[in-house]
Design a binder for these strands. Structure first.
Lengths: 235, 235
DNA sequence: CCCTGTTTCAAACGGGCGTTTCAATCAACT
DNA sequence: AGTTGATTGAAACGCCCGTTTGAAACAGGG
């Protein structure tokens, strides 16, 4: 038995000590996020995970089920990573709106965490598959409800639920654009401006200010004083 | 041979509907829009176009060049199909803003034209390839400049260019969400509400009203509370 | 030790892909 | 008609895909 035990790397892999199943899930999430379901190959996934090609079939059955599992895995990790703020009672609705927007932008654009998880979920949002409905129910709808509640309070409970939803979607859309079409935004905006005015904190201020002004609760974006700068969120 | 019949050189009358090159471009645009570059197959494209598989190589060289040509083709067709309104001098800026938003929504969501052209361009925006930069320069940037000019006039030329760009992106983001994440929006909003309040005309009204209110030029969306202060945000 | 069930491995299978081949066909002109 | 060059067609090529195989390596209890 002169078979060469060419187990790829015992030390060079990301985390060789973990279960092969977890390593496959990690590598699959990254590959699917980067290239999409069709273009990602199980061979590349297994190479990155340091396992044999047969392992994906052994642990997950086939490529489709591996994909669904990796989406759910990334989703659950993300929920634990960036939870919504836990506002103490009495926190003003306007402050909660700003926190909510900042949280959403940080989750979508923040560099503090590996980007592939959000990229993977974005793919589901943009081109839904079987994993999408679960994602919406567990992850997106609760967040949406929180935003609607904040807006309801901000508007003094004078607006219809349908109108609140439209305003909520307007706010989400502004954040969504930067995540989904960030490359095009980068082409439309000078690069120096991009680095200074289109960062998550700056955008959170802008989106919040825009919403409050539209609701008649803040200073309008355009009046005689705004040409310089409207003070953002005071520390 | 690597010779490509890139364009029919003979000056004879173009048989528009029967030219194999055009039939391939049409079918390719639909297939690429539906399934994406990787998942679309040359065989399906040729089947739909009613030509032999060798034709795509004969006319375009390879799949990649066919893709780029089909994106440009769809783009040019779209520009001719839905041009920007030609406002007579003196048209109020607010009216032009509403027209602009309605035009953009109609172009993105309208049912009056085959949807695959916009779907194809959306793919480029969401996951740029070689064809993207050309698309931005020829198609998106001029529209963006028109929107910025409208906003500049609306704000009485008091806002910095950078601020105008941010507001413009806010407006575009709201429209973009419905196009790119329409499926998720459909899950978050009751279906009856979707059919009545989230149509292109209704959305155009909403987005315009939202922007005008934020600029302090229209009635706030929640106008019963305009006198209330906003603790925690504005000084 | 052997037996038993689980996990890993190299190799291969069948199929679909983009691409190429080359002979057949067509259109136009001499 | 014959010639020529541009198109079309059926078939095949080589490659890589997801998946399967069957045996080797491992682990634990008798």
């Amino acid at each position: 038995m002169a078979t060469i035990r060419s187990h790829p790397e015992h030390a060079a892999g990301p985390k060789t000590a973990e279960d092969p199943r977890d390593r496959i899930l990690l590598a699959a999430g990254q590959e699917f996020a980067e290239h999409g379901y069709e273009a990602a190959t199980v061979r590349d996934i297994c190479l990155a995970a340091g396992v044999n090609v047969a392992a994906v079939n052994y642990y997950f059955g086939d490529k489709r089920r591996l994909y669904i599992e990796s989406v759910k895995h990334a989703h659950e990790a993300r929920v634990k990573q960036v939870p919504l703020p836990d506002w103490p009672p009495g926190t003003p609705a306007a402050a909660r709106l700003h926190d909510f927007v900042a949280n959403m932008l940080e989750r979508m654009l923040g560099f503090s965490q590996p980007p592939w998880q959000v990229r993977l979920m974005m793919r589901e949002v943009l081109h839904p598959t079987d994993a999408c409905r679960e994602l919406v129910e567990d992850y997106i709808r609760p967040h949406f409800a929180v935003l609607v509640a904040i807006l309801d309070e901000l508007a003094g409970r004078t607006l219809a639920e349908s109108e609140l939803r439209r305003i909520a979607l307007s706010i989400i859309g502004q954040c969504f654009l930067y995540r989904a079409a960030g490359d095009v935004v980068g082409m439309l905006v000078p690069s120096d401006e991009l680095a200074t005015l289109h960062t998550p904190p700056q955008l959170a201020d802008h989106v919040t200010r825009y919403a409050l002004a539209a609701l008649g609760l803040g200073r309008p974006l355009a009046d005689s004083l705004t040409s310089r700068s409207v003070p953002g969120i005071a520390p």
